[in-house]
Write a protein that binds this DNA or RNA. Sequence first.
DNA 1: ATGAAAGCGCTAACAG
DNA 2: CTGTTAGCGCTTTCAT
Lengths: 323, 323
Amino acid sequence: MVTRKDIAEYAGVSKTTVTRVINNQGNVSRENIEKVNHAIKVLEYYPNMVARGLKTKKTYQILFHAPELLNPFFVEIYTGMDEVARQHGYHIVVSSHYDINIVRQRQYDGVILSYVPKERRLSEYMILGVRLVATDYTNSVLEIPHIKVDITSGIMQALDYLYECGHRRIALVSLPFENDQRVAAYKKWLEMKNLLFQSNLIYNNQIEGATNYEQGYNAGVLIAESRLDATAIMVFNDAMAIGFLAALNHKGIRVPEDVSIVGFDNIVQAKYTSPPLTTVDSFLYQIGKECAQMLISEINGAEVKTKTIKTELIIRNSVARIS
Amino acid sequence: MVTRKDIAEYAGVSKTTVTRVINNQGNVSRENIEKVNHAIKVLEYYPNMVARGLKTKKTYQILFHAPELLNPFFVEIYTGMDEVARQHGYHIVVSSHYDINIVRQRQYDGVILSYVPKERRLSEYMILGVRLVATDYTNSVLEIPHIKVDITSGIMQALDYLYECGHRRIALVSLPFENDQRVAAYKKWLEMKNLLFQSNLIYNNQIEGATNYEQGYNAGVLIAESRLDATAIMVFNDAMAIGFLAALNHKGIRVPEDVSIVGFDNIVQAKYTSPPLTTVDSFLYQIGKECAQMLISEINGAEVKTKTIKTELIIRNSVARIS
DNA sequence: ATGAAAGCGCTAACAG
DNA sequence: CTGTTAGCGCTTTCAT
């Protein structure tokens, strides 16, 4: 391994001078700059980030804590995050297993949290004093800066659209989060429209916080086997909607002829279902970018504040007009 | 930050003794062990991996280099990898952008390569002398230990099944890799069966190496708009097959009534398409696990050798029996 | 069984 | 503008 010392010797200057040109801190003669740069090139020197990290307490590594990477939701957020992190010289390290000790040990410059379920855990992070940023954290008032999706208005956009298409009996597939925004928005909307159809408000509570294909599939089977008296169903998110769609399909229920479906998030796959899924775009890639930007700003000493992202309805073919 | 020094002072022993108990290297009295452990607990000490890494040259970090994480293929491999890495105290760091310098700078204990396209790049890694392991690397003879999928036999399993179901005019959607195993297997199989149907052998060459939903969709549109005289189509992999399926669906071509489809890989989503995709399981999760296991063994000084994973046909509903 | 001292590769005062 | 020195937190001879 070639170190700063080698460069110094080769260039005939001190190690400090080498450091100065590497981090271009000025105060070094034109001539020496060239000598050093030449030595760096010849010897193929690359600064050791581990050593640098030990000294400066900066690792240029950011931890992204997401519950399950197999869920495309998190991958899309990650992708956005990675994009801006790279632009700033940071690396994202993903962890899908809760392990507070690694942040104690690894000296991450910051942590991005994505739906870490238990409140207790958030406070554990906070106690550590590590810089923290989160994606929308279910619904509770979050004491750390985060990117919030305006889920309430997203749900309403979708519901309004269903209404416009003639739907009046609309079910919601959600999860038993305490005080879930989706359920709250749904109820509020029903009130506003003076609709009192709540019989198909579905809670699926097999696994806390899991909102994946399988959960959606299970919910779909459940619905298919019950007498279904809704004409449209709003599903928690796209991952679940995709599983849900599959279940209906297997059970011989046609979408949107027999029932209309709306998802949430607009993950990449939503475009490739049959039928293509009408959904609410929550700009996951954007969320990832903003999270990273926010955290890096914070690292650089800026004041950052929570931001809300507006959703947008994406109309495809999973909703039928009825009369 | 609480360091070893604090522990030493609190426990009334030397820093060396602290190290000894942390890494339980023996040669320390029962009494002192307890004192140190107690101090560690009280002060909530966690060893600094950065400092340790600088000294020992071991970071317990492994780099996973995959072209695109948005492709579920790589995520499934990653998940398996992460599982065994964690069991051994390693962390996987994902990178989807080729950047050889980061392995120069970050002192990874090893690198896992997944389909890095250019030969030149592989040799760059090899020159670095970093421990290297790969997933099946297209098809060329690979000079580093890797996990190989028996693609040839996988393709034949699928083709045999299609044959059994009465299909004789079978197309293949592949990519223009030089000497692609799929194409080779396909041709060989055609010969064996004395079938001379190659007109629908499709090359999609928009983006080198990209085998995602979009590519599949594009291929599907292409097929749908050409006169299609195949009764069955074998698609490069599941990601492409899902896009392909969507395209056919949008174009009003029914699967499997109008044409049968077989995928490759058995990614999680393959179960949730309409119809559920018949495919060849290449045990991605298993590949990930074996890769990590292999690399870690190598790090620990063992001799490791390339391993081949046998595929398995997963029959779902995207293939029709015809007569 | 224990501790002192050197050093991993780097940066940051400080002195010149 | 340049170099010397100390030290980040840890491990590892080498004495004792």
